[in-house]
Amino acid sequence: MARLTEDAEGVYVIAVTPFTDAGGLDLASIDRMVDFYEGAGATGLTVLGQLGEAPKLTAAESRTVVERVLKRLDGRLPVVVGVSAPGLAPMRELSDAVMGEGAAGVMVAPPWTLRTDDQVYAFYRSVGEALGDTPFVLQDYPLTTNVQIAAAAIERIVRDVSTCVMLKHEDWPGLAKIAALRRASETGGMRRISILCGNGGLFLPEEMARGADGAMTGFGFPEMMVGVVNAHAKGEVERAQDIFDAYLPLARYEQQQGIGLAVRKYVLAKRGVIASAHLRKPGAALSPADIADVERLLERQTRRLAEIGA
Results as ranks from 00 to 15, higher is better:
T43Y: 01
A42P: 01
Y121R: 04
A240C: 12
L286F: 10
T113P: 00
A212I: 01
H169W: 06
P135L: 02
A209G: 14
G272S: 06
Y124G: 13
A285W: 08
E206Y: 05
M208K: 04
L181V: 05
L305Q: 10
L27Q: 10
I157Q: 07
R264M: 12
K234N: 07
G220F: 01
K56E: 07
Q301Y: 09
E6N: 09
R32A: 03
M166L: 15
V81I: 13
F136P: 01
G132V: 03
R296T: 09
A59F: 10
G200P: 04
V161R: 03
L88V: 02
S84R: 12
K270D: 12
A240L: 05
G201N: 08
P111E: 09
Q241F: 13
G258T: 07
E238H: 07
A153R: 06
K270L: 12
G10Q: 07
A251P: 00
G189H: 07
A151V: 04
M166C: 12
I308V: 11
A122W: 00
A85G: 02
L248D: 08
Q255Y: 11
A152H: 04
L286P: 00
A104T: 03
K234W: 07
G102E: 03
D171R: 13
G75R: 00
E93Q: 12
D96Q: 14
D171T: 11
A152W: 00
G201M: 08
Q148G: 00
A28D: 15
V267S: 01
G211Q: 09
D160Q: 14
F203E: 14
G189L: 03
D133S: 11
I308Y: 13
E61K: 09
K281E: 14
D96G: 14
V47L: 05
T134L: 04
Q119G: 14
D290E: 08
L45A: 09
A60C: 02
L45K: 06
E299T: 12
V66H: 06
V69W: 05
A209K: 07
D7R: 11
R280L: 15
